[in-house]
Each structure stands twice: as C-alpha cells, then as structure tokens.
Write a protein that binds this DNA or RNA. Structure first.
Lengths: 340, 340
DNA sequence: CTGAAAGCGCTAACAG
DNA sequence: CTGTTAGCGCTTTCAG
C-alpha cells in the first residue's frame, strides 16, 4: 500500500514519532535528521494520510459552502461568483465542498469532524434549521447574504434594501411615476428586501403603490420573461420596471422587444446585481452592483480566521452596493410618465 | 465530546463491536439487539466519525470535481450546469469537492485516500499531468469533455467538431460564403475542435479560408465583444460569424449593434453550447446544443459505478450535439454574400 | 449471535 | 533531541 511514516522511520533508523515531528517541522528535532527524513519522504513520495491526521487532530481540512438550493433561484452567474470568491481565498489549504442545503434530508453528516468550517450563502429563512444545526455543532460559521439575528455569527451582507431604494429613486428622478416591480423568488430574503426598497422609494415620493404593478418571478430569465408578459397585457403599462435581478431583466427585455416595443424608448428597465451579462445586453442595463465576489471572499477569509482562532470577533458586516447607470432608462418629461 | 460507539455499547450492555455491526446492519446480529442499539444511537444523536471510518475502510466519501481552471475560460453557465449535473446524482452520498486544477502547485494531497473518485472537466492538454497523477494513484476517474487516448479511462464527450461543422454547413446552406470565426480560448481542446469543424465545413464547400476572418477569443463575453470589434474594422466584412460559444456570441452581438448594424439583417451570428442566455438574447441565437448537464450526470453516475466496482467497463461515450435554429441567421440570396 | 484483541496512520504525553 | 507508549473511533479477524 501507500507509504507511511513507519516506512520512513525504518529507512531513517529513527522512530516514527521522530518522523512525524520532523515532517511537521517541530523545533524539537535536529536540523540534520529533519533534512534526512524529509529527503527520504520526498524520495518515497510520501503523502500523509489525511484521515489519520483528522482522527487525531480533529480537523478535516474541509470547508463547506452551502447554498439554500442549487436548483431554482440560484442564478449561474451568482453561483459562479460565489464559488470563485471563496475558492480564491482557501486555495489548496482546504477542500471546498459545495452543496445545496436542500440536498440533505437530515444533517447528521454535517459535523464538526467533517467540516472545519461552514459558509452558508443564505437566501431564505428555511435555512435557519441548518444554520442552527451548525451552531449547535459548534462549527465555525459564516453566513452570507442574509442577516441572522439569533446568536453570534459572522454575517456578511449587502444592503439590498438601500440599493433597491436608490435605483427606484433614480427612476423617479428621471421622471418615472408608473414603476412596476418584478419580484424575486418567493421566500427569499433578498426578494423581500428589494421589494421593500422599492416600496420605500415610492412612498417617499408619495407615489401610490399599484398591486397590478407587482409581479412575482423567481430570479431566472424565463421568469422575468413571463412576468413581463404579464405586465404587458394589462390595460395600463408602467413606464419603468424594476427587475429584482439582472437575469430577470434580460428576460423582461426579451418580452418587451417581442411585443414590438423598445427599451428604453417605450419602457425603461433596471436590474439588480450587476451580473456580467448586464453590460452586454442591449441596451446595457442600469443596475445595482452587488459585490458578490467580494462578499464571498471576505466571508471565506473571516471563516479561515475563525477556524484558527475560536474567539475572533463575530460581527455583521455590510458591503455597499453601487448604482451603475447605463442605457436602459429613459429620462422622461413630466406628463408622459404613463403610456397606454 | 461527541458520542461514539463505545458510549452506546455501555448503555446497551454490549461490546462496541456489536454496536458497530448493528449500526452497519450486519446479518450477524440479532434483530432485537439491533433495534435496541439503533434506538439508543438515535436517542444519543450518534453520528459516525468519518475520519475513523475512512482510516480503516480506505474510503473518504469525497468526490472531486476538477476544472482546468476556475478562472478565465470557464463560463458561469457552463460551470453551473456541470456542478449541478454532478451534484444531482451524488446527492448526499458523497461530498462534492470543487476545485480548479490550477489551484494546485503539486498534487500531493490528491490521493486515493482523500478522493474516492475524481471527475475532470478537462479543457486542455495541460490537464494531462493531473490526469496521469490520478491514474497513477489508481483513483477511479472519469474525464469529461476531452478525449484521453492513453490508458483506459471512462471518457464522456460531445462531438464538438461535428457540431461545429454542422452549424457552419447550415450557414453555407443559408447562402453564406464569407464566414468568420471567433475562436475559443487558446489551448483549449474544445476551441480546436470547433475550429476544425469550421474549417472542414468550408473546405467541403470549397470556400477558401481567409485568415482575416479568424479571430481568437477566450470564451467570455468581453472577448467576443473585442473580437467582433476587430472584425468590424476590416475593409471586408463577413456575412456571418461563427462564435465558438454563446457567451462570445452575446459579446459579438453587442459590438455589432453598437456599430449601428443589425443582426441578422446585416450580419448573421451563431453560437455554440446553447447556454440558457442564448434563448433570451435578441435575436435569439441559433446555436449548437451541447448536453453539458447530461454529460456531467452521466459522468457522475459512471464514476459512482466505478467506485463500487473496480472492473466496470471503461469506455469513451459520445453524446450528440444538436443544431438549434433560432433567429440570428439570415437566409441570403446568392450574390450578396459579401457586404462591404 | 457476541466479544476480545488487534490494527488502520497519526500525534502527544512522558521519559530519558 | 529522540524513543516508548498510548490512544483517536472504527472495523475485522478469530474464538467462543
């Protein structure tokens, strides 16, 4: 079978303990023997048995990255950015395990023994059971994207409510009054926050909220397309639509163009996230940049700290969003804010 | 600390051996004692220590999914589809570890002990070193997307060359003669195959290949945009452009529209992959569907078989691509196949 | 059907 | 500075 420290010990004429220490750079070991042992190890292509190490060190070298779900509601661009962000900081120090929370029926296998730490990209309060489980198991934990109010957790967030409020306010500033919303996936916190930002902006400008201007999507392109269709068959059209993410905006634009209308001439569209795609659709999308990769990176690096140091501070950290103005909004003169 | 089989043994008045057997449903154990033991285990919320199990069983319950790189050249949609495809079949039976091969400087930690099996989504021959390593370690292995000629490997592929040839042939059938190509990332096998398909189609119809119609991209939208720009400033424009993937096609369309030209009226565009986005751009993209999720799923399920059964057959399996005709190609009358 | 004993590969006291 | 010994939690002979 594969080579172990005992094999090395035999060849080096030392005890396997000495080998263990040498390989771990213990200061207790004489430099010369260290060198000798390391040389033999390299020559034999020794690689430590991680299971054995784990067993005695209580460390698995695994970091779990859990999404609420890997299916509907998680867009490709989002997923990619998160994995890349996290992976970029843990490199080859840990193995990155990617899972959907909904892949599990029960969380028995999610233990401190199998995960040195866990990052949850949390979308919905359905995740609370899982998060509580991780806390109960005392697994170092970072929750991204959704505020956790119970217990002390490191929490990295973007202020979606404010971002949404800002972009809707921007629409209002451009003269829009009839502003519809395509909402995100039902049950997702982000969907709720963005909706609330939308509402606040309207209220702030004393624009009445019209139920017929609220349509629900689920964050994918198809749902944006459907939702826009829905809006387009109504007697009264909005002059602008706030899509709760960019992917839905892409779908919405498609629906509009098919109807023979133009963006932004007939209808203005804004999105949220600043997905890569948003710069490349036509017209380029005015949107809210949400620093997903930065959030993920920050989360990962906090988690690594947390693993090495139990008592690192656990706090909530907000990352700013940013309004990105491109070409999908038309400036309106007062008066033509409704088209019919 | 956490509860072990010994704790259960004590409470059940049996040996820990019996507990181990009972929990593993050994036929040697009396049904009643089994039930009793399982009850206690559940009550104590016992979960096995995977490291200990691994140590003795030589199984880690890890499956590694390795991409050539997680950075440039791997598009978000592609990445998402692959992870989802694989994850869907392994569910909670294995932990799915996602990595870029280029995250590793050396492969010491990639051993049979830490990975029950490995899936490589391989883009480039640079991966060979890694693949060879996995073979040397006797790790059950499935390579997706790139043909491996040495050794016996399970290999799941899509016939990109033929797919590309078909779609270019389609362009020719529609009357196009001045057909440009935006190539994929240099060094990627898929880029080469698609290029070759393009060339074959041209040659087959005795259309001369023009070097000024060949531009290199790297599979992302931005590169498609740049490449198209490049084509657009040349004295002689093509009437159609074959983009080696859909993302680049999106970028290319953007460049064309910015130039004040229309797709497909002035310039026809086709892509490759049938990304989700391709149906939602305007015009909807004519492309080649490549069954990425299916390939991934099939690969994963083969790997699981391979893990359970050393001697499962190792073969190469080709999945068909399919021409998806949408609206990005104009049918040309003979004669206006060049515009200037 | 059950138990005692050994051992997987490694680290950590404790002695020297 | 190095070795002896024990033990992490589990499975697997081998006996009974």
């Amino acid at each position: 079978m594969s080579v172990t420290i005992k094999d090395i010990a035999r060849l080096a004429n030392v005890s396997h303990t000495t080998v263990s220490r040498a390989l771990n750079d213990s200061p207790l070991i004489n430099e010369d023997t260290k060198l000798k042992i390391k040389a033999i190890a390299k020559q034999l292509k020794y690689t430590p048995n991680i299971s054995a190490k784990s067993l005695v060190l209580h460390r698995s070298y695994n970091i779990g990255l859990f999404f609420s779900t890997l299916n509907t509601g998680t867009s490709a661009g989002f997923f990619y950015d998160v994995v890349r962000g996290v992976n970029g900081v843990i490199k080859d120090r840990y193995k990155l395990i990617v899972k959907g929370i909904d892949d599990y029926k029960e969380y028995g296998t999610v233990t401190k023994k199998s995960f040195d730490g866990i990052i949850v990209m949390s979308q919905s309060s359905d995740d609370n059971r899982f998060i509580r489980h991780a806390m109960d198991q005392q697994i170092p934990l970072v929750v991204l994207n959704r505020e956790i109010k119970y217990g002390a957790v490191t929490n990295i967030l973007s202020d979606d409510l404010r971002g949404a409020r800002n972009i809707v306010k921007y629409l209002i500033d451009q003269g829009h009054r009839a502003i519809a919303i395509i909402e995100g996936k039902r049950g997702f916190q982000s969907a709720q926050d963005r909706k609330e930002g939308y509402l606040q902006a309207l209220r702030h400008s004393s624009i009445p909220v019209k139920p017929e201007f609220e349509v629900i999507g689920n964050y994918d392109m198809e749902s944006g397309y459907q939702a826009m269709h829905h809006l387009l068959v109504q007697p009264r059209l909005p002059s602008a639509v706030f899509c709760s993410n960019d992917e839905m905006a892409v779908g919405a634009i498609k629906a509009i163009l098919e109807k023979g209308l133009k963006v932004p001439d007939d209808l203005s569209i804004v999105g949220f996230d600043d997905n890569i795609v948003s710069a490349f659709v036509t017209p380029a999308l005015t949107t809210v940049r949400r620093p997903i990769e930065k959030v993920s990176r920050e989360g990962a690096s906090r988690l690594v700290d947390l693993i090495d140091n139990d008592e690192a501070p656990k706090e909530a950290l907000y990352m700013n969003t940013e309004l990105i103005i491109r070409q999908s909004v038309k400036k309106l003169d007062r008066g033509d804010s409704d088209i019919s």
